[in-house]
Amino acid sequence: MNIFRLAGDMTHLLSILVLLLKIYATKSCSGISRKTQDLYAMVFVARYLDLFTDFISVYNSIMKVVFIASSVAIVWCMRYHPMVRRSYDRELDTFRHYFLVGASFALALILHEKFTVQEIFWAFSIYLEAVAILPQLVMLQRSGNVDNLTGQYVFFLGAYRAFYILNWIYRYLTEARFSRWIACISGVVQTALYADFFYYYFIR
């Protein structure tokens, strides 16, 4: 664990918790893409299938449970909370996100480290995470305005991506075995999409 990864994990956690708490406190999810939230919940569930098979650290296990629980809670609120669901901007959230799921899964079937259920779902989660922000990006461009909640959420997510890239550079320089190009390329694509989002956010 280096400082960049810890900072990345904490900003990632903050992005999700701030979103969940604000949605719950204000009873509104206006401006938030439910499709992006669906994708993130799928990302965490698919990636953390190793929760019961591979123990890495107490920190890792707790964070995995928190990420799954909080992302599922956001989706639950947006779908089923009687007041929150009324504030959902359905007509602006039009991205066909199931294409992303299908394409990511197809890519995972082709590009993976081993042909096992866990490895394929792990690769799927990496590819899907890289593009999961797209429905939110499209929604932002359609609505044309960034409110505080969306802005903070994307700011923390962008910070998480930036710290993780620094973490990878650090690990690349300090660890002997570092050759997982699947995650690296996907991570760079994901960060580039956030850079686009930031650009749009700042010119507003």
């Binding site: 990864r5 190793d50 890495i56 650290s57 890792n60 993780y164 973490n167 690990r171 075995r177 997982r180």
Partner: peptide, 10 residues
């Protein structure tokens, strides 16, 4: 020791 990048990350 787990140093298998990036499976030891979140």
């Amino acid at each position: 020791k787990h140093s298998s990048f990036p499976k030891d990350e979140l």
